[in-house]
C-alpha cells in the first residue's frame, strides 16, 4: 500500500541552526509511527512543517499522494492532516464543549452562517460530546478551557484533534506533564485510537513509545539517524549512543 505521508529531502534552518536536514520519511496507513529524539532535536519543527505551520527551505511533502508542500495550515487540516500542539493551544474563553464543537464545525460545511445560535447546534454538540467522552472529559463539558487542569487541557487538545476527523493525526508529546494516572489513561486512549487513525506520535516517554509504536524513527540534531521496528531501534548501537544512552546516563 502506498504511504499516507511522504517526506522528500525536507530541510529547514533557523539562521545557523539546521533543525531539519534532508529528512526522508514514509508513513504507512493504519500504523502508529513514533518520532523520538532529545530536546531540541527538531521534532516540533518537523511537525510544524508537516502540518503547514512552518515552510521548509527545501524538500517536498506528500499527503495521500498529493503534493501539499505549498498548502497552508488550514488547507492541510481540511484534507485531514490534523495536529495537536505540544503546549496545549485552546480557546481559553470557550467551554470545553465549545472548543470541540468548533472543531466539529470546521468539518460540517460552511461556517458563513450568521443567525442560528451555534451553541444550540445539536449535531455539533453531539459530536463534541462523543469526542469529550472518549478522552474522559465527559464530566467537564461546561468548564471553560482556561479553568481546566494541565492534564485536562492535554486531553482536551486530543479531543479537539479527534473532532477534526483526522486521516493522519500528528501528536506532539501528548503525555508531557501528565501525572502517573493520567498517563495511564492517555496510553489506554491511544491504544484504542491507533486502530482507527494513522498517527505520528512525538514522545519522550519511552515506555509509552515502545508500548504503542509500530514503527520508530529517531531524530537527532535535525537528522533522522534511524527508522525501523521498535525492537530494532532499541537494540541499535547508533541510537543508543546518540540518544537512549544519553537518557540512561541522565
Amino acid at each position: 500500500m502506498s504511504a499516507i505521508l511522504r517526506l522528500e529531502g525536507l530541510s529547514k534552518r533557523f539562521g545557523a541552526l539546521a533543525v531539519s536536514q534532508d529528512i526522508c520519511l514514509e508513513l504507512a496507513p493504519g500504523r502508529l509511527h513514533a518520532l523520538i529524539g532529545p530536546n531540541g532535536a527538531g521534532k516540533t519543527s518537523l511537525i510544524n512543517q508537516i502540518s503547514g505551520a512552518l515552510a521548509p527551505d527545501a524538500g517536498r511533502i506528500f499527503f495521500e499522494d498529493e503534493d501539499v508542500t505549498r498548502l497552508g495550515l488550514a488547507q492541510r487540516a481540511r484534507r485531514g492532516l490534523v495536529r495537536s500542539f505540544q503546549v496545549a493551544s485552546l480557546f481559553d474563553g470557550f467551554s470545553a464543549l465549545d472548543n470541540v464543537a468548533l472543531a466539529a464545525q470546521a468539518r460540517a460545511g460552511s461556517s458563513f452562517r450568521f443567525f442560528a445560535r451555534a451553541g444550540k447546534a445539536a449535531d455539533l454538540n453531539a459530536k463534541a460530546r462523543v469526542a469529550l467522552d472518549r478522552v474522559g472529559l465527559g464530566e467537564r463539558v461546561g468548564r471553560r478551557a482556561g479553568e481546566l487542569s494541565h492534564g485536562e487541557r492535554r486531553l482536551l487538545e486530543i479531543a479537539v484533534a479527534l473532532a477534526c476527523q483526522p486521516r493522519l493525526l500528528l501528536l506532539d508529546e501528548p503525555f508531557a506533564g501528565l501525572g502517573v494516572e493520567e498517563s495511564a489513561e492517555a496510553l489506554a486512549l491511544l491504544q484504542t485510537l491507533k486502530t482507527e487513525v494513522t498517527m505520528l506520535l512525538v514522545e519522550h516517554d519511552m515506555e509509552a513509545v515502545f508500548a504503542l509504536a509500530d514503527d520508530v524513527s529517531v531524530l537527532v540534531g535535525g537528522r533522522l539517524i534511524a527508522s525501523g521496528a521498535p525492537e530494532a531501534i532499541r537494540q541499535s548501537p547508533a541510537v543508543r549512543e546518540a540518544y537512549l544512552g544519553e537518557e540512561e546516563a541522565a
Binding site: 488550514a74 487540516a77 493551544s89 461556517s111 479537539v160
Partner: peptide, 20 residues
C-alpha cells in the same frame, strides 16, 4: 452564530483556528 464563534476563536488564538 457559527460565524461569530469562528470570529471569537480567531481573536483568542488565530493559529489554533487555522489548525482546525
Amino acid at each position: 452564530s457559527r460565524f461569530g464563534r469562528v470570529l471569537g476563536a480567531i481573536r483568542q488564538n488565530p493559529l489554533r483556528v487555522r489548525a482546525l
